[in-house]
């Protein structure tokens, strides 16, 4: 990060408050991952365990009741894969290459 691009002490909001809500949405952490979760929907029982455990709140429910990872924010930690009771989430190498 470039220190010089940040606000000066006079520009910094009082007490370093961040007055805008939801600024973390602009911070896409999806490129941190090496492995990414892939959900096998045939085995998925829609129990929402992945959704509950995901520390990044990266899982989103779709119109059919399945939970899908949002790769823009998923950091690839693999917790969902470990916690899934039907073992339907595999961590695989990213396809982007």
């Amino acid at each position: 990060m470039n220190v010089k691009e940040k606000p000066t002490w006079k520009e910094l909001p009082l007490a370093a408050v961040i007055p805008e809500p939801g600024t973390s949405a602009a911070y896409r952490t999806g490129d941190w991952k090496t492995l990414q979760p892939v959900v096998d929907k045939k085995a998925c029982i829609k129990c929402a365990t992945c959704y509950t455990f995901c520390p990044e709140a990266a899982y989103e429910e779709d119109e059919y009741g399945y939970f899908n990872p949002n790769y823009d924010y998923c950091k690839g930690c693999g917790i969902c894969s470990v916690e899934c009771p039907s073992m339907c989430i595999q961590m695989v190498e990213e396809a982007s290459e």
Binding site: M1, V3, K6, P7, T8, W9, K10, L12, L14, A15, A16
Partner: peptide
């Protein structure tokens, strides 16, 4: 990147 400026402030 922020702490120093916050302290000066």
């Amino acid at each position: 990147e922020i702490y120093t400026e916050a302290h000066k402030q």
